[in-house]
């Protein structure tokens, strides 16, 4: 019993270090996204925005927010040993993330018509970099799902699930700022 407790304490200690490392990575990534966000306002000001579909913007934003909710539910379910709910929520998160990616890359991009102008360049730069993060997030979630099926995580020891969740929410936070910057602030350029 004592050795089990010691091992769990050791796991918690490592978890704390891993958590700090993940947040440091996210803060460094924030600087890249923040640079794009500032560049958008520097180049276009607050009176101009790219020509994009408002309805699609709202739809994909809603998808990503709901996916974040399901990721939270999945992580909570894992922490309480609610395995069925965990798998179900994780699968919904992956599905919604994939739909978001399709919405941006397969639907919004063809509609946006890249013409080499500053507004479209900014739009493709910001959505492209963000979409790449969504894609890596989906890979991360699929890996976590597979490892869960192998029985690698328990209610007490599931750091990779938490890491995937924090990363997924970070991608959501970035979009929370990109959505008004690209879709809502200013009038259509040209």
């Amino acid at each position: 019993m004592s050795s089990v407790t010691t091992t769990l304490n050791e796991y918690r200690r490592r978890e704390g270090t891993n958590r700090l490392g993940l947040w440091l990575f996210l803060i460094s990534d924030t600087f890249v996204f923040a640079g794009m966000f500032v560049a958008r306002f520097y180049l276009l000001g607050s009176g101009t925005r790219p020509e994009v579909s408002q309805e699609l913007g709202l739809a994909i934003t809603t998808l990503l927010l709901i996916s974040s909710y399901f990721m939270y539910t999945a992580e909570t379910a894992m922490a309480f040993g609610d395995t069925r709910k965990y798998y179900r929520s994780l699968m919904v998160t992956i599905a919604l993330g994939t739909l978001f990616l399709i919405g941006v890359v397969a639907v919004e991009w063809p509609l946006a018509h890249y013409d080499g102008s500053v507004p479209t360049s900014i739009f493709f730069l910001m959505t492209g970099f963000h979409a790449f993060h969504v894609l890596t997030g989906i890979f991360f979630l699929v890996i976590v799902y597979r490892n869960s099926k192998k029985g690698l995580y328990t209610a007490e020891r599931h750091w990779p699930v938490e890491a995937a969740a924090v990363y997924w929410h970070f991608v959501d936070v970035v979009w929370i700022f990109f959505y008004p910057a690209l879709y809502l602030i200013g009038g259509v350029a040209g």
């Binding site: 947040w23 909710y69 939270y72 969740a165 929370i176």
Partner: peptide, 11 residues
Amino acid sequence: VVRDFMHVRRL
């Protein structure tokens, strides 16, 4: 999101 979903307090 940062406070409730990302559990920043765990840091």
